[in-house]
Write a protein that binds this DNA or RNA. Structure first.
Length: 524
RNA sequence: GGGGAUGUAGCUCAGGGGUAGAGCAACUGCCUUUUAAGCAGUGGGUCGGAGGUUCGAUUCCUCCCAUCCUCACCA
């Protein structure tokens, strides 16, 4: 916000007027850039002799960027400009650029964008620099930027002085954060690399990128509270998607055999280090495959993304060594519980499991106590998740945890009917959740394509919703019709892109990997 | 939602019941190979907001706001 009263800003307005008086447009239309800072530095070689030094002076480059530091020494000035590749030092002499340009130079500030022409040389102190023959103001900056200084010690260590550290301002004014803070831009370059890599892995296997609605009249595909909005012309409520799962499955019904989509999902829930109300997932669906196929593709996509960013599969996340090399460990949920607690939950009654949890001080959600499957899932989360550091797939979840997944293939049809009638029997489904560093980084199924069972599971969800559970799946008749038309055997995956990016960029907070994380609006 | 921490100049921070201080940035002057440039000087703050206690509050108290950490919720 420009506060006219601020002395520093007032000063810049005065300078702007003086610059205009000198006949200079502080906001010209274009500039021909011939080189980038990183290339100039990378390609520089020291001249062999005097003659070559002289010859170099006629090799003129044009470069543009934002002034990040300026050192005036009377009739000569050094400054650093930053373009999108690197920063480079400029050397400008009064008797070479002329009286008026030098007067303009005196009025330039950190933050202004300039274009310069000159030749590349190495200074006495060894820094590759551009010796300017002319320069042009390209954009006057009216807002004083934080001044971040870098010091290179004798040992080559880089010390950053007075970094722009206020996290709130960094997130709210990301443009400033990107300009002045070292490493921020790199995180987002890596984010793009990761997404590109995942996309290319999927395309390698013939997946087609598609687009499905963000505004939905029935939300679904996950258990979460949605954002509600309203369409004026139709006078109906609409929901921002919590998932695109049901639409991608409709496309499989429609005859696409492999589809994927990177999407923003919106969930009206709490905000913390790993949750933002809007977040990015990539979901993919593969006809004729099962969850084993999805596991292979998932671990390959993450492994490749890691290689794209780090050149290898080993990373250090906040002090934890992780190896993302495929294949990852696979473990059934009930085996994980047995490994950790020694319990064989299948042979225990629901109430025995609950009693065990109470006796052992294990956090227990009483809202879920009506179902043995949910109690088992609850026990798993409270006891096993904390050990899932290295990448692992946790397989075969209780059916009550999701209405969209197919039961294990080992059950016969009649067996399933029997099991449904007995509340002490738990039906498991072909679902897996990949874990890295204790985080769920995705969710996948052998997709349910039995329309009768699908309808029944939705009805169960609606029933549970009436019973007080807050986040149950709504009925979606059109989706059931699509399943009735016939969806081939299919497997599908959702991957939490933001969490993958956090892991691969060593970021502590999801906000560090979102360019513009949600912030409360500011007063005034 | 509970607990803890923080909020002082454009930035990074110190201070502390008597209306504020440093470094960088800004401004003036000197300086034609400097680099956290240097030297000399100058200006800049309703100390997050609202109340209260007090002769007096930026400092103590209460409430509010924002941010961070943490727990809960969100599988």
């Amino acid at each position: 916000m420009v506060n006219e009263q601020n002395e520093l800003i007032k000063r810049r307005f005065e300078e702007l007027e003086e610059i205009k008086k000198l006949g200079v447009n502080p906001y010209p239309h274009r500039y021909d850039v011939t080189h980038k800072a990183a290339d100039l530095i990378k390609n520089f070689t020291d001249p062999k002799d005097e003659a070559e030094t002289e010859a170099r002076k006629s090799v003129i480059v044009a470069i543009a960027g934002r002034i990040s530091a300026i050192r005036r020494m009377g009739k000569a000035t050094f400054c650093h400009i930053k373009d999108d590749t690197d920063r480079i030092q400029l050397y400008i002499k009064k008797d070479e650029v002329g009286e008026t340009p030098y007067a303009i130079l005196k009025m330039l500030d950190i933050g202004d964008i300039i274009g310069v022409k000159g030749f590349v040389f190495r200074t006495k102190t060894g820094e590759i620099s551009v010796h300017c023959v002319s320069f042009e103001l390209l954009t006057k900056s009216m807002f004083p930027l934080p001044v971040v200084k870098e010091e290179i010690t004798e040992t080559g260590e880089k010390i950053v002085h007075d970094a722009f550290a206020d996290v709130e301002l960094r997130y709210r004014q990301r443009y400033i954060d990107l300009i002045v803070n070292e490493g921020v831009k790199e995180t987002f370059l890596n984010r793009t690399k990761i997404i590109k890599s995942i996309r290319s892995t999927l395309e390698k296997y013939g997946f087609l990128e598609v687009e499905t609605p963000t505004l939905q009249s029935i939300y679904g595909g996950a258990n979460a509270r949605p954002f509600v909005t309203h369409h004026n012309a139709l006078d109906i409520p609409l929901y921002l998607r919590i998932s695109n799962e049901l639409f991608l499955k409709r496309l499989i019904v429609g005859g696409f055999s492999r589809v994927f989509e990177f999407v923003k999902d919106f969930r009206n829930e709490g905000i913390d280090r790993t949750h933002n109300p809007e977040f990015t997932q990539v979901e993919w669906y593969q006809a004729y495959g099962d969850y084993n196929d999805s596991m292979k593709l998932f671990e390959e996509a993450v492994e490749q993304a890691c290689i794209a960013v780090h050149g290898g599969t080993k990373i250090n996340y906040q002090g934890t060594e992780l190896d993302l090399k495929a294949p990852w460990k696979r473990i059934r949920m009930i085996d994980a519980i047995k490994e950790k607690t020694g319990l064989d939950v299948l042979s225990m009654k629901k109430d025995e499991i609950i009693l065990y949890m109470k006796q052992n001080g294990i956090e227990f959600d009483t809202k879920l106590s009506h179902s043995k499957g949910l109690v088992i899932a609850n026990l798993f989360e409270e006891t096993c998740e904390e050990d899932l550091i290295q990448p692992a797939f946790v397989l075969d979840h209780p059916i009550d945890t999701t209405p969209l997944c197919k039961p294990l293939r080992e059950y016969s049809l009649s067996q399933l009917e029997e099991m449904r009638k007995d509340p002490e029997q738990v039906i498991f489904v072909e679902r897996f959740e990949p874990y890295i560093n204790k985080w769920e980084v995705g969710n996948a199924y052998t997709e349910l394509n039995d329309p009768i069972l699908q309808r029944r599971l939705f009805e169960d969800q609606v029933e549970r919703g009436r019973g007080g559970e807050e986040e149950t799946h709504p009925m979606d008749d059109d989706f059931i019709r699509a399943i009735e038309v016939g969806m081939p055997p299919t497997t599908g995956v959702g991957m939490g892109v933001d969490r993958i990016v956090m892991l691969l960029t060593n970021s502590v907070n999801i906000r560090d990997v979102l360019l513009f994380p949600l912030m409360k609006p500011q007063e005034k």
